[in-house]
Every structure is written in C-alpha cells, then in structure tokens.
C-alpha cells in the first residue's frame, strides 16, 4: 500500500511524465496500481461529501452517506470511460504516437491527479459540512472544489500532452538551455509536472495539437459535469427521502444556476 502511495506521489511530482521517459514512448503508470488508487482517493472525497447526510437531518441517512462515498469514484471512472475513445482518436489524429494502452494509462493517471486534489480538499469540505445546514451552499462548495480539482487535473493532462507533442517519437532530447541569471540557485530544482519541457517544440505541430486538446478538455469537463448530474443525489437534499438515483430531468448547468439563485434568496 505504501509503495502505491509512493507511486502516486511520483506521479504528482511529475517524475512519471518527465520528458526523458515520454521520449521513449512509455507512460509508466501501471493500471493495477493507479486504478485502485483513483477509486480509493475518490472514496475519501465521497466520504467527506457524505457527512452532510449525517449532520443535516434528524435521522442520519447512512444509506446516503454510503451512496455518496461509492458514487464519487464511479463519477470519475464513468467520465473516463465515456470520454476515453474520443481522446484516443484525437490523439492519433494529431500524431501523438501514444498507443491505445498508453493513452488509457495516461488518462487513469489524470484521474488519479483529479481524485488526489479532491481528496486533499476533503478536510475543508468536512469542516464546512459540520457547520453548515444550508443545502445550496454545500452544493456550490462541492461544485467549486471539484471544479478546482478538475482544473488542476486537466492542466496536468494538457502539459503532459504538450510534452508528448514536443518530443518526437524516439528522438533523443536536446541538451538543456543554459540557465539564466534568475535560474541560478545552489541547486537546480527538479522539473515539476507543469514545467515546460526543456526542448524546443516545432511551432506548427504544437499549435494544432493544442487546439484539439482544448476541445477535448471541454468535452471532458462537460461530460464530467453532466455525469455528476446523472448520478445525483451526491449530497442528498435534507427534505427528500433517500434514493440511489433521482429521476432524469434537467441538466447540470440549469441546476447550478438555480442553486445560486436559491442561495441568494431570489
């Protein structure tokens, strides 16, 4: 277990998506480690999310708590399943020579980043859940925290893809550019996952890849948001009985606008 956490830590630090590794066309993210980890980290956030069902009503709804805990990793993984084929196709289109399984490994890695950032916000969520009875506030707080986590994860993905596009398959890396005055501390910091690659990418390839990846990120964000809406209730309205799933109506964006209005008392 400890070594699994070490591997997640390596991923977050960007050691597993370093340009030297990517240039070999490998993505060293074993699925048998990272899939369970994305589920585990998702469970942690879901657990804090489920607290609301315990503290907001007179009879704690343990079933809702369990449902929240389980649904959160399901949200991450189902979004991945729905969007994976399109990323793979786009990826192949722009000439990123990642194999099918390498693309999948990369995306599971992104899911792990998403779930880890979300889980690290868990204490903040739990703290507000303990002290809040307002249902609209909790919904919006969850939306904001998950959106932040999603934004970090997608930035991670975009940077990795940019590195991949910048590193032609099988070519050795050019040496690092000389350090500038600002960049001369005693030790040179290890490049993080979001740092720009030390090689100069061909400009036109990057531009094309970037726009397609941006479209894909948009798709991922929209599907993720709507998936969350389909799987609701996550938090559980204190005025409604527990259900595993609610009737299929409306969409995520209508609902968020409605909740903002509710919170403002309009």
């Amino acid at each position: 277990m400890y070594s699994w956490f070490r591997q997640v830590d390596d991923l977050l630090r960007g050691r597993r998506t370093a340009p030297e590794i990517l240039s070999k066309g490998e993505i060293p993210l074993p699925l048998r480690v990272f899939t369970p980890m994305s589920i585990l980290l998702g469970l942690i956030y879901g657990f804090f999310m489920g607290w609301y069902a315990l503290f907001s009503r007179e009879n704690p709804a343990y079933a809702q708590m369990l449902a929240s805990t389980v649904k959160l990793p399901a949200l991450f993984l189902l979004t991945l399943i729905v969007t994976f084929p399109s990323l793979y196709v786009f990826n192949a289109l722009v000439g990123c020579r990642l194999s099918f399984s390498a693309t999948l490994r990369l995306l599971v890695g992104v899911t792990v980043v998403n779930a880890t950032v979300a889980a690290s916000f868990g204490p903040i969520l739990g703290f507000f859940t303990l002290s809040t009875t307002s249902y609209p506030f909790m919904i919006l707080l969850n939306v904001v925290l998950l959106a932040l986590a999603g934004a970090v994860a997608l930035t991670f993905l975009l940077h990795t893809l940019r590195r991949l596009a910048a590193v032609p398959y099988g070519t050795p890396l050019q040496p690092l550019p000389p350090a500038t005055e600002l960049d001369t501390p005693q030790r040179r910091p290890e490049p993080g996952p979001l740092d720009t690659p030390p090689v100069r990418p061909p400009a036109e390839a990057i531009g094309q890849a970037q726009s397609i990846f941006r479209i894909w990120v948009l798709i991922y964000g929209l599907v993720g948001a709507q998936m969350g809406w389909l799987l609701r209730p996550f938090i559980g309205s204190p005025n409604m009985p527990f259900e595993w799933f609610r009737a299929r109506e409306g969409n995520f964006f209508q609902a968020v606008t409605q909740q903002i209005q509710n919170l403002l008392g309009a």
């Binding site: 630090r13 960007g14 889980a119 916000f121 903040i124 910091p189």
Partner: peptide, 13 residues
Amino acid sequence: PGFFVLNTVLGLR
C-alpha cells in the same frame, strides 16, 4: 492537505 497536494502538482515539493 490541499496546500500540500497543490505544491506537489505544481512541482514545488
């Protein structure tokens, strides 16, 4: 916890 993970992802560990 949030600050820790954010620092890690930003490569500032």
